[in-house]
Design a protein around this nucleic acid. Structure first.
Length: 483
DNA sequence: AAAAAAT
């Protein structure tokens, strides 16, 4: 039985905003974390993706800022009292949006600063004074150096996607930022994934923390159906096009491991006639935000992205996620597929596995506690790629083979040759031509059930319902499990 | 190994 937000007795302006946003029943992480944050305690919170972690910290935080005056006399009328740090610019933008909505009817001001944007408007905003500051680490340090912001009055700091914020790439920046904060403060850590090592590290930043776990850490949401397909490197794009068509061209996030691969796939898919946008770190911030907006607006069907989009992004009703490449880190798998199946909606996660990705796949299986067994995927090939389009074709599929998809009859062109040809096509400004996509689907393994039906259905994982542990229990959890 | 975050 989940309680309503109305039972929290939050300040009227906050309640009004909640109602306006259509929030009613709390999710388990909200139900458990909000009272603890309201009580002013440090929190380490783990809950599956898409279960409303932002509201779980933002609402009680705003409540406390409203009800508890800033104790020390401050030179600024609006000192930063709460700081929220995030690992990507898009996520900072999104969380800032949500905070602003929650705070809409209060007198509290919020702002967001992240890189890739002009400093000046951010400086102006900070100068006016804000109680809640949302930021990415790099740009925040810039502002600290430029003395356009002071963090000496911060009472609350939130590390969202905490395990990422504490990893080696972010830790130095994070430590430099935390050095600007008062020692006496409340610290809140949230993520869907926490490794044992990161938990231990995290504890050194917390005082008397309450550990809130509404699911085993690293658990995937049970509303997401996970499918794994064995494909060859050269078949991935075809497989993607085929599945896209089989799924009625529904929208999806398509994750690629490198920025170059991401840009390249997006370009090729566009040529294939798919409405595509690319989102990765080599794009300008303007392009990045536009790509996301275009996807949200439904102007784009496949968002081709790197792990910049793996965490936290909350877009309603994304039907599917495709791991075009198996992620290098197993936790990223959990976050990537968490872009679908949000708020309990159903979602589909498809992962392509090539032979050299088996090790990474095994790591994922270990992390999420499932036996992962990639199914063969019959990749249909057009009868011909270049000429003879008008030739009548035999629509009856060939006889079934239960084995791996057939290889091409003719020797494969080298990767290089194909890329060269693609570049040529581009220079000529050719109109999108799609031998692979618009051509009638001709399965190489016709007796196989449609690809999206052959995947094994995993039983939903059993989650412990929420339990709050004291610090001693936290310490126990942090001990290596073997001992 | 790669991406991300400052320019």
């Amino acid at each position: 039985m989940s309680k309503d937000f109305s039972t929290l007795m939050l300040a009227e302006p906050i309640q009004r905003a909640i109602a306006e946003m259509g929030y009613e029943a709390m999710t388990p992480i909200q139900e458990q974390a909000i009272p603890v944050v309201l009580a002013g305690q440090d929190v380490m919170g783990a809950a599956q993706t898409g279960t409303g972690k932002t509201a779980a910290f933002a609402l009680p935080l705003l409540q406390r800022l409203l009800k508890h005056e800033n104790g020390s006399a401050s030179p600024a009328r609006h000192p930063v009292r709460a700081l929220v740090l995030l690992p990507t610019r898009e996520l900072a933008n999104q969380v800032a949006d949500q905070v602003a909505k929650f705070a809409k009817y209060t007198k509290l001001r919020s702002a967001v600063v992240f890189g890739g944007m002009d400093m000046k408007p951010q400086v102006a905003e900070l100068k006016k004074g804000v109680e809640v500051l949302v930021a990415t680490p790099g740009r925040l340090l810039d502002h600290l150096e430029a003395k356009s912001v002071s963090l000496g009055q911060v009472e609350y700091v939130v590390l969202d996607e905490a395990d990422r914020m504490l990893d080696i790439g972010f830790l130095p920046d994070l430590q430099r930022i935390l050095a600007h904060l008062p020692k006496k403060r409340t610290t809140l850590l949230f993520s869907a994934t926490f490794s044992t090592e990161i938990k231990r590290l995290a504890e050194s930043y917390l005082q008397n923390p309450v550990l809130i776990e509404v699911a085993r850490p690293n658990a995937t949401a049970s509303s997401i159906e996970q499918q794994f397909f064995r494909v060859g490197d050269a078949d991935k794009r075809l497989a993607l096009l085929q599945l896209f068509r089989q799924h009625d061209k529904q929208q999806a996030f398509v994750f690629v491991n490198s920025r170059l691969g991401c840009a390249r796939l997006a370009r090729m898919l566009e040529r294939d006639g798919v409405r595509t946008a690319a989102l990765h770190g080599d794009k300008s911030q303007d392009e990045r935000l536009k790509a996301l907006e275009a996807f949200k607006a439904g102007e784009v069907d496949l968002l081709i992205c790197t792990d910049v989009a793996a965490r936290g992004l909350d877009i309603k009703d994304v039907p599917a996620v495709v791991n075009y490449d198996v992620p290098f880190h197993a936790e990223d798998y959990v976050h990537r597929i968490g872009r679908t199946g949000r708020g309990g909606a159903s979602g589909l996660a498809i992962t392509f596995v090539t032979d050299h990705e088996d090790r990474q796949l095994a790591e994922i299986g270990k992390l999420i506690g499932k036996q992962l067994d990639p199914q063969p995927l019959a990749v249909g090939r057009p009868a011909r790629e270049h000429s003879a389009r008008a030739e009548p074709r035999n629509e009856r599929p060939a006889a079934a083979t239960r084995e791996r998809p057939q290889r091409r009859e003719r020797p494969e062109r080298s990767e290089r040759a194909r890329h060269a040809e693609e570049r040529q096509t581009y220079r000529r400004g050719a109109t999108p031509r799609d031998p692979l996509f618009d051509a009638p689907y001709e399965p190489s393994d016709s007796a196989a059930a449609p690809a999206w039906e052959v995947a094994p259905r995993q039983p939903a994982p059993q989650h412990r319902s929420g339990n709050i542990k004291s610090k001693s229990k936290v310490a126990a959890l942090l001990r290596p499990s073997g001992s």
